[in-house]
Amino acid sequence: MSALLSPLGALGRLTLDILAAMGRVAIFAAQTLTHMLRPPFYPREFLNALLQIGWLSLPVVGLTAIFTGGALALQIYAGGARFNAEAVVPQIVAIGMVRELGPVLVGLMIAARVTSSIAAELATMKVTEQIDALVTLSTHPMKYLAVPRVLAALITVPILVGVGDIIGIFGGYVVATQNLGFNAAAYLQNTVDFLEMRDIVSSLVKGCVFGGIAAVMGCYYGMNSGRGAQGVGRATKGSVEAAAVLILAANFLLTGVFFSV
């Protein structure tokens, strides 16, 4: 009997652990937001975070988006051909990129690139007592380390998503006009006609939320890292896993909010 129940016990413990962790993360996120509003501010750290999180992520976001848009056009053309609906390529590429693939793929790339680097950097700072040193130098680690990164992500990730959407659509456009025989002007016209304001707003809101998740998870895991090199490794791995899963879950919820009639 007890052997049968022990997996249940483990499941229960896991559930409790997850709930407790979610509570701690929520408190951490709320603290970061309140620190965002109160001085002192660290503009230099903020500008650096804008550069690291926003500008330097552009290449990987662009590459992700262009290949995805191109593949999407090929798939829809092949799939649509089964019921003589090849012509919908521009419309489906547009909503596919803007509503789902743009925000999700950019969010996941940001989790891979930004969350991991924030977590590893802050965890190393924790392990080498640099975070303690900040405190002794009268500098609040949340204000100095977390706030600039989270704020920069909230601002730049929606922009990255917007750029990703456009590049993705462009990828589909290139494939459709070069390989699939679509007329260039008609393709663009179809795209513009088909997209609604709601699509674009949802895309940018998703970007903002995913950026927040990515940066908060990096900061949370980094600043709560365990000791030693192993602690840094665990923090980095945990932060990326958590950010990716939360981004996908948040995407599901947001899609529900925006598009369930």
Binding site: T128, E129, Q130, D132, A133, L134, T136, L137, S138
Partner: peptide, 17 residues
């Protein structure tokens, strides 16, 4: 803040940024 402003600390490992 006022309390910490009175202190200086050298950490065992240096803890330089």
């Amino acid at each position: 803040d006022a309390f910490l402003a009175r202190f200086g600390m050298l950490f065992q490992g240096g803890a330089l940024f």
